[in-house]
Amino acid sequence: MKKEIAIAALGELLIDFTEAGISKNGRKLFEQNPGGAPANLLTVASHMGYRTAFIGKIGTDMHGAFLKKTLQQEGIATGAVVEDEHYFTTLAFVEIDEKGERNFSFARKPGADTQLQTEELDVKLLSDCRIFHFGSLSLTQEPSRGTTLEAIRIAKDAGALISYDPNYRASLWPDEETAVAQMKSVIPLADVMKVSDEESLLLTGAADYEEAADQLLSNGLKLVAITLGSKGALVATSTYREIVKAFPVNAVDTTGAGDSFWGGFLSCYLSYDKKMEDLGVEELRRCALTGNATAGLCVQKRGGIPSIPTRKEIEEFIRERTDR
């Protein structure tokens, strides 16, 4: 029986208050941008025409209501989004430098996203998705850590491809050692993994990205994608390895770049209707190309979800730059 949901993702749904200029009084202005890594990824897949669903918790406050409405407007199912009156929706304040790189400050003590309980999981949804995706922010504290592990178990037992994207935010962990231990502990549970260049070295202690890819694959992963910023992405399996170059663009805000890459990659993968391990070299290359194009468009705008391009924009972007 064919599964109804292409991708279900569990994790943080939050507001990124992104720097947006200076007021008349000389004060920084911040723009309310809906985001959260799992939600960013789902938005890409939804724009690409796939059925998606978000699993997580928000507060019964103005920010939670705004986020839920945003997901619905993006075509992402919200039946598994829990609203909790006892916790405030998580907020992130994002400072951006001249290269579009970010510095985060979180209001999350605790945020609603960390309070998702195991009994609040939608078991039917987890059993009815082709891909189950999660990140590491839900691993920072209980009860969301245990809930994430249970969701992985349910989805894996039902035959879903398990996708993992460690998203290291130092201020959300008691120390680096704890963060690395927790982020590494779930790698053997995943089938595919996207990780940034810095995070790949942090998690493995490797001297370079090639060595990091080897170490990560040794955990039983079918595929590892290491994003390398403006250089593109290293895609590695047991039989294939290549750095697929990025498209040159002028980056305004890198928020959501990695999520956009992975959302584009997984969406392209879904279009082949094959097992990950059965993809050929050209198909893997096309997945990375689609990811790079999605990320290249994303970083030209501010915010997470608001910067996600449409399918038409992605296809035109690729066509214009590969037909030359």
Rank of each mutant, 00 (worst) to 15 (best):
A160R: 12
L161W: 06
I162V: 08
I162D: 00
S163C: 04
S163F: 02
D165P: 13
N167M: 07
N167Y: 07
N167E: 03
Y168F: 05
Y168G: 00
R169E: 01
R169P: 00
R169M: 02
A170K: 14
W173K: 02
W173Q: 03
P174C: 02
E176C: 04
E176S: 05
E177T: 13
A179P: 04
V180P: 11
A181M: 15
Q182I: 12
M183Q: 05
K184R: 13
P188I: 13
P188D: 15
L189F: 09
A190S: 04
D191T: 12
V192F: 04
K194Q: 12
K194G: 06
K194E: 12
V195Y: 03
V195P: 01
E198P: 09
L202T: 00
L202D: 00
L203D: 02
L203M: 01
T204Y: 06
G205T: 07
A206M: 11
A206L: 04
A207F: 06
A207E: 13
Y209T: 13
E210Q: 08
A212K: 05
A212Y: 05
A213D: 07
D214G: 05
Q215S: 13
Q215Y: 14
Q215M: 15
L217Y: 02
G220A: 09
L221S: 08
A225C: 10
A225F: 01
A225D: 03
G229Q: 04
G229I: 05
S230G: 13
K231M: 06
V235W: 01
A236V: 03
S238A: 07
T239A: 12
Y240I: 11
R241T: 09
R241K: 13
I243K: 12
V244S: 10
K245M: 15
K245N: 11
P248G: 05
V249F: 07
A251P: 08
A251Q: 05
V252K: 14
D253C: 05
D253P: 07
T255W: 11
G256N: 11
G256T: 08
G256P: 02
G256D: 01
A257Y: 04
G258E: 11
S260R: 13
F261K: 02
F261V: 05
G263T: 03
G264F: 03
G264Y: 08
S267V: 04
C268R: 14
Y269I: 14
Y269G: 12
L270V: 03
S271V: 09
M276K: 00
E277Y: 13
L279V: 10
G280I: 15
V281N: 15
V281W: 14
E283W: 10
E283A: 04
